[in-house]
Design a protein around this nucleic acid. Structure first.
Length: 286
DNA sequence: TTCCAGGTGCATA
DNA sequence: TATGCACATGGA
């Protein structure tokens, strides 16, 4: 990725490996909004405004922010996504539709996996369970406005301390549905959580550690590791990936999500997280 | 009205 | 360990 670092902005030349639309609309992140000239994206208490011309492919993209270094890491700008994409296209994935994977990579060519905050990811993906993206965004927005720090033009994502002031009834009133009680218990546990230790833990140990959190099952644990810890050897299997697997990959569908995950990780190995996101985005847009 | 959405907790065998 | 069911909510 060719980018230029300025004091208050990051300038990106060439949009082939960086599409604000692909990155933000592909389902990995919930706190962003469209503006007249692009997007604003929020992470913890920080924000960045992205200016670009959607109609002009490969046009100049500017990311304006007070936290330049944070967002260089957030957007994973030092990684070579061209290499990732060409590697993925060589993998034999699909028994039934041999071009599905390469089509998915072509379609979502500007996706990058964001390096999000583990705590924000955990809370967000607990809310995501059996829910749709539009609603998830609304719930997170209302929770932030309810108890997150007022930053002027927006609210920061609440800290565990701030979230612990909310009751189950509060979460219900904000639209969390039956996940309200999970959130209360999860927040209580996360106040004492050692996030650092998860960075170095082997993946299976990290998964079983995360599964102890109320509201976190196998799929949400994978999402936390993928989006919150930037681990690529996990493959979150949700309803969309299940469709991909059964419709395009195998002639013998209806395997359990656990089996599907195992098969996919064996195929994609350390590229599982990337593959998952291209496939998820493509299937959803079909 | 029914189905579905980035599934999980819990009871049961 | 594996399976089946209940679970809030709102849009299609």
């Amino acid at each position: 990725m060719i980018y230029t670092r300025k004091e208050d902005r990051i300038i990106i030349n060439g949009g082939e490996d960086f599409s604000p639309t692909h990155i933000l609309e592909c389902g990995q992140v919930f706190r962003f909004k469209r503006t007249e000239n692009g997007y604003i994206v929020y992470s913890l208490d920080k924000c960045a405004e992205i200016f670009f011309n959607e109609k002009a492919e490969n046009s100049r993209i500017e990311i304006v922010t007070k936290d330049v270094d944070y967002f260089i890491n957030y957007f994973d700008l030092n990684r070579d996504y061209s290499q990732i994409k060409s590697h993925l296209k060589q993998i034999k994935f699909d028994e039934r539709d041999s071009s599905f994977l390469s089509n998915a990579v072509e379609y979502g060519h500007g996706i990058r996996i964001l390096c999000q905050d583990p705590f924000e990811s955990t809370i967000s993906f607990i809310i995501s369970a059996n829910n749709n993206i539009k609603r998830i965004q609304g719930i997170i927005e209302r929770i932030s406005a309810k108890c997150g720090t007022n930053m002027g033009n927006y609210y920061a994502f609440p800290t565990a301390e701030q979230l612990s002031t909310l009751t189950e009834e509060d979460f219900t009133a904000l639209g969390a549905g039956y996940r309200a009680k999970y959130l209360v218990k999860a927040v209580e546990m996360l106040k004492e959580f050692d996030y650092q230790s998860f960075k170095t833990l082997p993946t299976d140990e990290a998964v079983s550690g995360l599964l102890k959190i109320m509201g976190v099952g196998p799929k949400v644990a994978d999402c936390i590791l993928l989006f919150g810890y930037n681990r690529m050897d996990v493959f979150p299997v949700d309803t969309w990936i299940e469709k991909v697997y059964n419709n395009y990959f195998t002639a013998t569908p209806l395997k359990s999500r656990k089996e599907i995950r195992k098969n996919l990780v064996e195929i994609f190995k350390n590229y599982s997280g990337y593959a998952q996101q291209y496939l998820f985005y493509y299937q959803r847009e079909l």
